[in-house]
Computed example of a mutant assay.
Amino acid sequence: MTLSPTSAPRMLRGLALGLLAAAVTLPALLPTTTAVAAERTRERVAYVLFHAGERGSMMSGDTDDLRRARAQRAGTEALLYVRSGGSHYVIREAATLRAAERIFAPQRDLGARQGALGKRQGALGAQQAELSMRQAEIGMRQARAAVSLASTGAARPDVNEREQRALEQKQEALGRQQDMLSREQDALSREQTRIAAQTDRELRALIEEAVRSGAARRIG
């Protein structure tokens, strides 16, 4: 096809306008990162579980979930607040709360194990810090001994060196224990991922049943 001198500019302008329209329309058709993140948040089940007579709670959610749950609680009653699929529910029915307790039991157990492991890691860290301080003190004593040796020519005692080697061996032993605890922590983290997925599935099923039976009251 042969283009006339006047038709070519018109075609170029038309092509440019078409590309501009596509550039404006395409972002509107594609989901934004914020929208995708919001959708994923809505897909997750958030909950706040209050035990009877206790002020604390067991939860997985954000501060808004905790605020909503506290607003629904009367005194220190047992209560389960759930956000699922953009809806909010409150459950006070005893049988459903007992079922929720069973669902959350593995998480409580895992949390206790992680807490105990954290204490052991903290104790090892304190021992390592103490050994490091003692090694630093020995280093200072060795430096002073070296200065004295240079000025007097006296024989250099090897007591400090033996003590330093003993401390280094203890430090290495503590390091091996710390490595072992780190591996335990990694294993618990993997277990936490598995338990979280299991809890989510079982909690969804519990909420669906509670909604069908009327045990769950929708609040928003």
Rank of each mutant, 00 (worst) to 15 (best):
A155I: 12
L117N: 09
Q171Y: 05
F104W: 10
G175V: 07
A105T: 10
A166C: 00
L181N: 12
L110Y: 05
L131M: 05
P157D: 12
I103N: 01
Q164G: 05
L97I: 03
R176Q: 14
K119D: 14
G175W: 03
S132P: 02
A126I: 06
A112G: 01
R98Q: 15
A136W: 02
L110V: 03
R144C: 01
E184V: 07
A105D: 15
R176V: 05
G139K: 07
Q164C: 01
G115N: 05
S189R: 12
R98W: 00
S132D: 13
R190H: 08
A126C: 04
L131N: 12
S148C: 00
R108S: 07
A95T: 15
A99Y: 00
G111P: 01
M133G: 10
M180W: 08
G85K: 03
S182D: 13
A99L: 08
G125N: 09
G139D: 08
Q107T: 13
A187I: 11
D109R: 15
Q142Y: 01
L174T: 06
D179E: 15
Q121H: 05
V159T: 15
M133H: 11
G86W: 02
T193G: 11
A105Y: 07
S189N: 10
R92M: 03
E137I: 00
A136D: 09
V147Y: 01
K119G: 05
Q171A: 14
R144I: 07
R165N: 05
S148G: 01
T152F: 04
N160I: 00
M140V: 12
A99F: 02
Q135R: 13
G115L: 04
R194A: 14
L181E: 09
L167Q: 08
I138H: 03
R102Y: 02
T152E: 02
Y89N: 02
R108Y: 05
G122P: 04
R92D: 07
A126L: 08
K170A: 11
V90Q: 09
L188P: 04
A126D: 10
R176F: 03
A166R: 07
R183H: 13
R134V: 04
R156F: 13
A150F: 07
Q128W: 00
Q164L: 14
R141L: 15
S132V: 07
